[in-house]
Design a protein around this nucleic acid. Structure first.
Lengths: 159, 159
DNA sequence: TTGATATATGTTACAGTATATCACATCAAG
DNA sequence: CTTGATGTGATATACTGTAACATATATCAA
């Protein structure tokens, strides 16, 4: 479960693997992986960055797959609530999940220069957040952990 | 630096203390603590929860202190960028800072039942977020850490 | 197969959040 | 006194998200 980071990788196979994994999980769980939902995930995977709902909608519209906001939002809701994508609150945008299906609290490193996004996995119990919640008697249901800054590449470019 | 949590406290003096601390800091740093900015902070302190920009704007309007969105957003920008308030991304809302002036990465526990918000302080270097960033060579400039769930009181109420 | 139920999609309209821009006032520094 | 920085007022607009209702498609039991 490596963080999917700022390094090069075989993008084509990464898309294919993710898609077939999601396909399999939908079959197993009786979820309908419909054309719109599939296409939205493909778009997110292909871009490999966070996209706004309306960017996604524009592409759906170009392909005749739906033209109104609720179409995009519903597909995104499906993907997010089943763990196939995440919403990045800081950007009001969405990104494909780097390790779909595994129940996890994602953590994002967002480069403010090149807009790339790396996903890693938090370890809540040992983090300040988890320990504070325990101490306060708060029950965490969902956590949002996002950092903005400069990725290694853009630090070099700036320097 | 206790987390300001879900327990009772002397709200009147907590408002007064916070306000005078901010006042002092503005004086020290040559920042203009203007009527609009002061009023917005007072509103946030008084509510002691996260407020949307337009909720704040409505109150400003009632008091004749400005009626257009930029007025509220500019005051909020001032408060946020100087560390006197925080934006809670998960809610698209704003809350007064519980320990203004201290440079810190705030962490929020948000009750989805009663909407109360507790602020605590993260220890980035030891958390997964900080360690991951270090390992990836990512330089964090700002972090957003927010948890949604049930506060102790609402857990009891639900049970 | 048929009908009943649940789920997914299409569309309109709107609500909520945020910013760009221009004009004007104030005030401190040179 | 004028220049530049900062704050305010106001209009307009862009971006993000949802409510509500109609239609279509899938699923499953009888």
């Amino acid at each position: 479960m490596d963080p999917v980071g700022f390094t090069q990788h075989d993008h084509h196979s990464c898309i294919a693997q993710n898609l077939s994994a999601v396909e399999q999980m939908c079959a197993d769980q009786g979820l309908q992986f419909t054309p719109v939902r599939r296409r939205v995930l493909e778009i997110l995977l292909h871009e490999h960055r966070a996209l706004g709902a309306y960017e996604i909608l524009d592409r759906l519209r170009d392909e005749g797959l739906g033209s109104q906001p609720p179409v995009a939002y519903r597909a995104l809701d499906f993907l997010v609530s089943n763990g196939f994508a995440h919403k990045i609150e800081h950007l009001n945008a969405f990104a494909a999940c780097a390790h779909p299906g595994q129940d996890h609290t994602p953590m994002f490193l967002i480069c403010r220069a090149c807009q790339s996004v790396a996903e890693a996995v938090a370890h809540l119990p040992s983090d300040t957040l988890g320990r504070t919640a325990r101490a306060e008697g708060f029950r965490i249901e969902k956590a949002v952990i996002e950092a903005e800054g400069l990725c290694p590449h853009c630090q070099d470019a700036t320097a």
